[in-house]
Amino acid sequence: MTDTTVARSAASARPAAAPTRKPWLASRRNLERALPWLVVIGLFLVWEVGVRAFSVPQFVLPAPSVIFESMWKWRVPILDNAWQTLFTTAVGFGIAIVFGLVTGVLIGSSSLIYNGLYPVLIGFNSIPKVAVVPILVIWFGIGTVPAIITAFLISFFPILVNVATGIATVEPELRDVLRALGARRRDIILKVGLPRAMPYFFASLKVAITVAFVGSIIAETVASNKGIGHLMMVASSRFDVPLVFAGLLVTALMGVAMYIVANIVERRMTGWATRGMDGGMSAPQG
């Protein structure tokens, strides 16, 4: 009887001491942090080995090492064009934020405007934006403006829908708190609707910023003389496949960077919605 108790307490003592001896990666937090990097590195490794093992020709699929080499070789034009893309995306995205917020508030707070405008917006959103670019070129010529407008057109919709949803779904109880004080409609939107919609708004920014990139690059490939999209078009017309891939990689990097910025802003601004849990993403596992 006593023996088993001793044995059990010895057994339970072991795991308690274990964490100090655990390797760095074994801690769940560190693993979660390192995982994306490990996946990317693993992907590149498999890619590199695969390309070499089956000796895939470079104009079909260049190996990562070749892509990085090309990236370094063309670093000046790449940076130059990436900057252009970043600029058009940021401007288009900025306009989308303002427009999406304002129309989102209007649509979310009035069922009249909602019923009148929503079907039109849905229809508009269903139009593939590539089809719009030629029209923009006719109106504004080739260059920066069509790219900005395409980035805007493609990214305002998720913002608008989210803000409208956030405002339209305010709990009647919270609205009543303000109404009971004799608050006017404007006060209710400002003090309850908008704060309540903020988590939706910031969540939508993460989606919107990535699609804004897609918009810019689509416009650049079709009608521009600058930008990452244009660079990739030129490279592919010269059969410089490594440079095309370098362009893709840079685009992906910019997308991820923007996403991270949007994510940080979101956490700063809407801590109340995630109830102060650090790392909203890893929360479900507790």
């Binding site: 109880e173 919270l174 708190v177 309540r196 903020m198 109340w272 919605a273």
Partner: peptide, 10 residues
């Protein structure tokens, strides 16, 4: 004062 506290969470 409502039956539920209905405080604004933010």
């Amino acid at each position: 004062a409502f039956q539920n506290a209905t405080l604004l969470p933010w």
